[in-house]
């Protein structure tokens, strides 16, 4: 579904991503784990062309390496950005409306689906996005991304700053999504991510140091020592 080849991101003299390859197959959850500053966010931003990059990105058979960000999203590849990036001055419903910008006719049915998945949002339809709790904002961010009817979803640290109970709620929802669309999940919370993923990549200083089936990584001594707290 998504094939990334020799992806490189430089910020001036800082090499954030150093020529990595990634592959996400249909019907799977793939996770990209790594420490803070490893280059995970840069990788996702490069895939959607939010930052300058080199290398090739093929999505569903189409080369999207040079495509403008909004066109990539229109094409069906959606990113839930790090820090959720809810439009804090827009209401919950307006945030969803923005997600469905190119889907006018389906707005209501998609919105109802999102409210079904996230009943908590339904009670806050007319509340400004900025007034939601962290967990609710994450749900809104995922719901907003789903409003574009994506064929694949990328999530950047959905667990960031959330309480453990909320994290498991969010990860449960991500697992449910897998049957509909493949997912590329970026996480520092390696344990939670590997538990729901099919395949995993370990990013270290901008390079992939290891990749394997998620259950093998969970059992890997090096991964256990570095990312799973022993």
């Amino acid at each position: 579904m998504l094939k990334v080849n020799d992806l490189t991101v430089n910020y001036g003299v800082i090499a954030a991503v150093r020529g990595i390859d990634l592959n996400v197959k249909a019907g799977t959850i793939v996770t990209l784990i790594g420490a803070n500053g490893a280059g995970k966010t840069s990788t996702l931003n490069a895939i959607v062309n939010s930052v300058k990059k080199s290398g090739s990105v093929i999505f569903d058979g189409i080369d999207i390496s040079k495509m403008a960000t909004h066109k990539i999203v229109k094409h069906g590849l959606s990113l839930v950005p790090e820090g959720r990036k809810i439009f804090i001055n827009l209401t919950v419903e307006e945030n969803l409306r923005m997600g469905a910008f190119n889907n006018d006719e389906d707005f209501e049915s998609l919105r109802n689906l999102v409210y079904e998945k996230f009943p908590r949002l339904k009670q806050k339809i007319n509340q400004a996005g900025g007034t939601l709790s962290g967990g609710e904002q994450q749900m809104l961010a995922i719901g907003r991304a789903l409003m574009s009817k994506p064929r694949m979803l990328m999530l950047d640290e959905p667990s960031l700053g959330l309480a453990p109970k909320i994290i498991s709620e969010v990860f449960e929802i991500i697992t449910e999504l897998k049957s509909d669309i493949p997912i590329l999940l970026v996480e520092q919370n390696a344990f939670a991510a590997l538990k729901i993923a099919d395949y995993g990549y370990v990013l270290e200083n901008g390079s992939i140091s290891l990749h394997d089936a998620a259950k093998n990584l969970l059992g890997n001594d090096e991964v256990r020592a570095k990312y799973l707290g022993g």
Binding site: H70, V73, K85, F87, I88, R97, M98
Partner: peptide
């Protein structure tokens, strides 16, 4: 929706693009 996008843009251009908005 265009007006909402104008308001959203006032806060965050990158995320507006992530909505598939030009």
């Amino acid at each position: 929706k265009y007006g909402m996008a104008i308001r959203a843009l006032a806060f965050d251009i990158q995320t507006v693009k992530l909505m598939g908005i030009d």
